[in-house]
Each structure stands twice: as structure tokens, then as C-alpha cells.
């Protein structure tokens, strides 16, 4: 059976991890390579790096970081943030990234999805969607949920699938940071609608939230950041618990 995936997400800036990381046996909490290695040892199925480097010049450090990660870890990883052209994606591919995630740039210019899929294959293209529930429905937001668009989330995801995205990373801005659980209703709706893998993001607060998201929405993967970084949820224990709840998991 294909296992459900558990994915820690790391924010990186200028080649260093940001946000507090609270691992006991970590020598350098800002070192993305060491952190990635720790997570792979703990049984993470995959990693996502979100690059929040502001300037284009400093993006060279991101490429170096991706190379270091690819050299050291033996599980797949995705890198996202600031990718708006084919050459950005190609540089990351050549540095060893398994997948890239695109967000705002694809909303602004949807053809980017077709171009990336054509050039590197659908398996390389993850579409990240930040969604918020407004009175008239679920709406795509840009810039980390700050800017609403006119686009309905469901319509955008359907279009992106047709254009050639290989996977959807759906973040509920209503849930993100609340620790009140994933947006299982929306996730189920989206998951039933598409025939590509869906990663749930936003709202993980405790282990039960992961059981709920897999049981209620049947998504392929669940992503979280702070609950893993602060050690509030330990991946080996989480995976055992999921397994005990008859959820297909790689131990």
C-alpha cells in the first residue's frame, strides 16, 4: 500500500533555517542540512523548504543549500519560494531538488505550470495554494495569505491540474497558526475533486489532528512546521500512533 506521508516544513532565509527550532541534540538550529538529516533519521517521509530569501542576489546561497541537502539526505525534498521562471526551477533541479513548489507566480501567469511540466515533467511541479474562506466561497490568496485574489480555490486547483501540476500543497489560512486541526472539510472536497496527490497544510496542533486529516479527507500527505520544530509532536511517536489507527504509514 502507498503510505501516507508526514512532511516537516522548514523556512529558510539566506541559506539558513529561521523560526525557533527546539531540538535537544541539535548543534546548530540554523543549519538546514543538519535539521534535514535529523528529520530524515526520525522518519520524515519528505521535506519541504520554503525559501523566504528576499533578494535575488542572495538566492545563490539557496542553491548552495539545496546542494548540501541533496548531498546529505536520502529522502525526497521540495523547495519553494520565489520561483517564477524556468531558469529558477532548472537551477534547483540541477542542485538536486526533487520537486519545486510554485505559488504567486503561477497565479499571475498560469502558463508557468505548463512550461515547467513540459520541461521537467509533472512529477517536478507542486502547486502551493493559500486559501481563505470568505462569505462568497474559498478564495486564493497571495503573499502568505495577505492579498486576496478574485479566483475561487476550487477553480484554480482544477485549472492547475489540467495545466500539468503533479501535486497540490493546500494551506488553509483560516487554520494556519491556530493549532486547531487541519481544514478537513475543504481538504476532502479538493482531494475528491482531483486525481493528483494532495498535501494538507495549516492547523496541525496535536497528533489527533493528523489522524483526523487522513481519516476524514484521505489526503496523501500532511505538512506541519512548528509542532515538529518545537518537539511538541515527535515523528516516530506520531507515525506509530497513525499506524495503530490503521492508517498506512512507513515505519
Amino acid at each position: 500500500m502507498l503510505a501516507k506521508r508526514i512532511i516537516p516544513c522548514l523556512d529558510v532565509k539566506d541559506g539558513r533555517t529561521v523560526k525557533g527550532i527546539n531540538f535537544v541534540d541539535l548543534r546548530d538550529a540554523g543549519d538546514p542540512v543538519e535539521l534535514a538529516w535529523q528529520y530524515s533519521r526520525q522518519g520524515a517521509d519528505e521535506l519541504v523548504f520554503l525559501d523566504i530569501t528576499a533578494t535575488h542576489e542572495k538566492r545563490k546561497t539557496t542553491i548552495e543549500m539545496v546542494k548540501s541537502v541533496a548531498r546529505q539526505i536520502n529522502i525526497p525534498f521540495t523547495i519553494g519560494g520565489g520561483i517564477s521562471e524556468l531558469k529558477d526551477a532548472e537551477a534547483l533541479l540541477n542542485a538536486g531538488a526533487d520537486k519545486i513548489s510554485i505559488n504567486s507566480a503561477a497565479v499571475r501567469r498560469p502558463e508557468l505550470i505548463n512550461e515547467l511540466a513540459e520541461a521537467f515533467g509533472v512529477q517536478f511541479v507542486v502547486l502551493a495554494v493559500d486559501t481563505k474562506n470568505l462569505p462568497h466561497g474559498d478564495v486564493v490568496h497571495l503573499n502568505g495569505g495577505r492579498i486576496p485574489t478574485e479566483i475561487k480555490t476550487q477553480d484554480w486547483i482544477k485549472e492547475a491540474e489540467e495545466r500539468g501540476t503533479g501535486e497540490i500543497l493546500l494551506t488553509s489560512m483560516d487554520k494556519d497558526g491556530t493549532k486547531s486541526g487541519f481544514d478537513n472539510v475543504l481538504l476532502k472536497q479538493i482531494n475528491d475533486m482531483v486525481s493528483i496527490p494532495v498535501i494538507a497544510s495549516g492547523g496541525a496542533g496535536n497528533a489527533q489532528d493528523f489522524i483526523d486529516v487522513f481519516q476524514q479527507s484521505d489526503v496523501d500527505a500532511a505538512l506541519a512546521a512548528s509542532v515538529f520544530h518545537y518537539g511538541e509532536i515527535l515523528i516516530p511517536e506520531l507515525k506509530q500512533l497513525l499506524k495503530n489507527n490503521q492508517i498506512e504509514i512507513r515505519l
Binding site: L2, A3, R5, D45, V122, V194, S195, P197
Partner: peptide, 15 residues
């Protein structure tokens, strides 16, 4: 094929 009722690509860890 679509008849297998699975998502494509087959992506992730399988036994």
C-alpha cells in the same frame, strides 16, 4: 489506467 482508481503520478513510499 483510470480504472485502477488511483492518483497518477504514483508518488510516495510504497511496499
Amino acid at each position: 489506467q483510470e480504472e485502477i482508481c488511483k492518483k497518477v503520478p504514483h508518488m510516495g513510499w510504497n511496499q
